[in-house]
Amino acid sequence: MARYTPPEQSKIGQLIDVVVLLGLSLGALFVPLRMGLSGAAKVVATPVENPTWETLGQTAVQAAQYEALGYTPATAHDLILARFDYSFEWSSLILMAVLIIGYFVIMLRLSEQEYKDVINEKFGE
């Protein structure tokens, strides 16, 4: 197999590659964040008016710990009652599974193509 000689990359080219990679990484975190799509914020489904420890469902021991931490029923209201919503569409779960499996399958196949070249050049045909 003929030995592959890679082209020399210019400094500007190197800089552009770094900027592209950085832009994609920042986008992966901040785009969902800025669009309000990331994370399932907990919600208070049924707020309690004029809350007390009892109406918030707290036992005497639990209430005592909250008070030791500096909370009152009013300030602890959202903290205690907020819950995740785990309802989901099966189609979304299947989509996620397909995406992850597809990602690994594509990556393994493309890696295998590249790997054969590496081995052939390293050890000879």
């Binding site: 994609l24 990331s38 995740f84 996620m96 990602y103």
Partner: peptide, 14 residues
């Protein structure tokens, strides 16, 4: 996926 599915999909797409 339970709670942070969007971020998971964004990450895989990345």
């Amino acid at each position: 996926f339970l709670g942070y599915g969007t971020q998971l999909i964004a990450m895989i797409l990345f």
